[in-house]
Nucleic acid binder design. Sequence first.
DNA 1: ATGGACCCTGTAGCGACTACAGGTTCAAGG
DNA 2: CCTTGAACCTGTAGTCGCTACAGGGTCCAT
Lengths: 152, 152
Amino acid sequence: MATNTFSGAASDTALSIGALSRCTGCNIETIRYYERIEVMPEPARTAGGHRQYGQAHVRRLSFIRRSRALGFSLDTVRALLSFVDGGEWTCDDVQAMTLVHLGETRRKIADLRKIERVLADMAAECAGGTVPDCPIIEALFEGASPAAEPAP
Amino acid sequence: MATNTFSGAASDTALSIGALSRCTGCNIETIRYYERIEVMPEPARTAGGHRQYGQAHVRRLSFIRRSRALGFSLDTVRALLSFVDGGEWTCDDVQAMTLVHLGETRRKIADLRKIERVLADMAAECAGGTVPDCPIIEALFEGASPAAEPAP
DNA sequence: ATGGACCCTGTAGCGACTACAGGTTCAAGG
DNA sequence: CCTTGAACCTGTAGTCGCTACAGGGTCCAT
């Protein structure tokens, strides 16, 4: 499934997995992984079993990489792709997914900023040297827990 | 190793793992996990094999949780703890570790802010509805990849 | 003595890859 | 046509920091 835009290999040039890797910047192992978990479709094969990709695969893999670079989970990417493949998603759904992810991103930023402040304060407190009491260690023992989740 | 401040169970009250969990907010399974990977020491046991903790364990586990909440990796926590345990670390080393982590945190914040901007722009572009062309999908296909690593 | 809350060990799963081992195929040069 | 070596194949296991079982044993109040 999720293969309806991929009827067989591409029309023009056939790319090996190594070529696809080079032209998308995506690791070979990762490409095979994407195939296994079915976000990339099974490509055509040579007689000897080597994978053969076309332009549609380049496009799709770039989409996946771009989505991942924006922090979308592979599950969400799958949903976005099923929209691309002409599933029953609406544009509203896509926007909603984007807004949810935007919210999560903003929460992470806020958490990290709290952490940043605490770390900067701790580091500033420490004059260095080989003092018996390290203010950073003290802070870690005694401080009230300051931040939310560590960035997961 | 890493047990020199823990000669046997604590002086006063003995806590069960559940009590330790409640009073530190750390999951029971996580406490056992910390013991297995040797960031928490093996505690004393009852005749029947139940773990018995003392105040030193509460202190140490709180330290670990606080460090984790600030985003330090368990490997770094191990290093910080070996300082606590009187290893050969200096206060300078601790400050250096903190500054490295502060740098990483700031880098993550910067990355996430780039991502935030792109997501916000994409979402703003989309008017919703059930249009054939979704601008978000278009952007994911065509946009130049805007950000660094997704927050890992 | 008994019930039920608690605890024990060991193993497997998550997400998103990455890294092998041990074998096969492809393409270019001789 | 044959050889070489780079590229490819499958399958499995490891990473990090937990979390979630299954299938049992212990503790303590009644």
